[in-house]
Design a binder for these strands. Structure first.
Lengths: 337, 337
DNA sequence: ATGTTGATTGGTAACGTTGTCAATAATATT
DNA sequence: AATATTATTGACAACGTTACCAATCAACAT
């Protein structure tokens, strides 16, 4: 691949087109007030010599890029892929591009990734959750573009936030389980309860159970990743405690489904012997028999709205600074409770 | 000293540190041959005034960025999130950042996304599949950095390719089904068989069946997305044809699992009444009862290797140009065949 | 006829960094 | 001790674009 020659620049377009460099620039980036004649001349010349914009140069001069920083824990789960899909869809039609970083559930990486990301002068930032290190908060407070924190709305947003109330989710499930007559209720989490929003959900769950005179019997927090297998493992551990648990709320559907499959494989009747409830409402919950009771979170919508807010903010179409968007949660009652 | 509206530059670091701008630059980007004294002076000053590198400016001068373009169909599936996770892990420790674009299964978008991505002067490009439009191929042939095509290895790579042989997968399943005694075999696909690698798999499957004197009875290609529900729908459509099918190979696990759940809900015995096989080997296949027969693809490893090749190539650590990395497939025999 | 306004085009000077070349100081080699 | 390397620092000039300001011209109002 010939890197001997340098790619054509605006000067190379302007010269054969017989126009100034700045005019060529305006045509190439679709600036207003350009006559058809000029546009045509420039476009023809650009086509001819195979000109391609250099956004790096433009970004340097313009002091801002069309890059959007997105930092998520990981992609290997059923939440963030949908979020990212939503963001991307909302960014369609704009010039904005998504630059992705992953913390792999290591809280401290968020700061490092953000620090590096900011060296690219992004136009906007999307993070997950409302909890961040002090350095992260400081970097963001000095950041001039729009910032959206996704997933969680229980707390203070740096700029904008889109997500669900984790507390509401905990309360919804607590009431549901108690209403259904379960009295010895347990909780199962994973990832050592990182990120922190899972803690908010569990705590609200516990408090509501307490309020309903049905205190949480115990909780099992798996240190490792969240998966079907680990859900089954943690569930088995829970059963081994022999606490006559009659219902379990899991931090997510994967854990709950792992437990459900474990029950099916071990002739434990669900919900007669034990009831199971998950969180997120992934497609699988509705497709299996019995359908898993869960809380459906609008993941794609969260991503879409986050992307749309960023896009509008950058385009100057709206000003939603300092706003929090709390989307609806829905209890999906399956046959496991 | 100057403008407090603009972020500090190297000049603002160099001045209080009492060194030249270029020396400050060298320290900030970790160039070799810097004395400890200089490094310390610069780092102190940088810390003091809160200097942050401007990669845009550096990229303009250096003619290359540390951005890696990654174009995938979508994130809402069980394949590409793992790939992207793998890429990201392989890029850890380097300065490289992943810029993500999604075609949403519209083949023609790849070209548009790539065109836009190239305006950012990426250091490398990762695409999925080996099939691309002529324009895409031309843009890539003029691109000077490393290019990795992931997923598919049946064809010619532009530069490097990492993935599996789709044909091998088709053959493996064909042999397995025939060996198990199935004789009236069907195929179910989705997304209108975009991307094209699914066609390669199906065709190899058909040819091998033919060779084994058990020609494919029929295939159903769903036009829309791949999901559990659509798998069930397409499967139901297949059953409605009343062709006495005794085994079905699905384009992926989601479709197959959808069919399996449909069978479970409708008292169709698997594999006695009909055998089902999927493709990809997602975790769920092993967790349910009966375990789904499938072919496991090393998705994370494909992503990791792709990222690692890009990283090494850019660091000049290796030269794997024009190489194809065909990873192993494994038939996971469950209880559905 | 005389401004006035807006549309259209151009010139100049950054944007903040680093490649290249050059100079000097420190160390190794003969 | 003289010379050859190597390590360390600096000066200058790009990199390719666009913000800003200025100029021209046509259309329109007074």
């Amino acid at each position: 691949m010939g890197n001997d020659t340098r790619p054509p620049t605006l000067k190379d377009v302007a010269s054969p087109a017989g126009v100034s460099v700045i005019s060529a620039s305006r045509v190439m980036r679709g600036a207003p007030n350009i006559s058809n004649g000029l546009r045509e001349k420039v476009e023809t010349a650009a086509q001819m010599i195979g000109y391609r914009r250099n956004r790096i140069a433009g970004s340097l001069r313009g002091q801002t890029t069309d890059l959007i920083t997105v930092i998520v824990p990981s992609m290997s789960n059923h939440v963030f892929p949908n979020i990212v899909d939503g963001i991307d869809d909302a960014l369609q039609g704009s010039q904005l591009r998504l630059v992705l970083g992953m913390t792999k559930y290591k809280d401290s990486s968020e700061e490092d990734i953000l620090r590096d990301m900011l060296t690219w002068n992004p136009a906007g930032v999307i993070l997950s959750g409302l909890e961040h290190s002090d350095s992260t908060k400081e970097m963001l407070s000095n950041f001039s573009g729009p910032i959206v924190e996704v997933m969680d709305t229980d707390g203070d947003a740096i700029d904008m936030a889109v997500g669900n109330s984790m507390a509401e989710a905990g309360v919804l499930i607590a009431r549901h389980l108690v209403a259904k007559g379960y009295r010895r209720i347990a909780y199962v989490g994973a990832w050592g309860e990182r990120p922190k929003r899972s803690v908010k959900r569990r705590v609200a769950f516990e408090i509501e159970l307490e309020r309903l005179n049905t205190p949480l019997v115990t909780s099992v927090i798996h240190e490792g990743e969240s998966s079907l297998q680990h859900g089954a493992q943690a569930f088995k551990r829970l059963l081994d405690y022999d606490l006559k648990i009659d219902a379990v709320f899991f931090a997510n559907d994967d854990l709950a489904l792992g437990a459900l499959f474990y029950c099916q494989a071990n002739n434990i009747r669900v919900p007669q012997d034990i009831a199971l409830a998950g969180f997120n409402g992934i497609e699988l919950c509705q497709s299996i028999t019995p359908r898993l009771t869960t809380i459906s979170t609008p993941r794609y919508e969260i991503g879409w709205l986050a992307g749309d807010l960023i896009r509008k903010q950058i385009a100057g179409e709206s000003n939603s600074k300092q706003q929090m968007f709390r989307l609806d949660l829905e209890l999906i009652e399956g046959s496991t409770t």
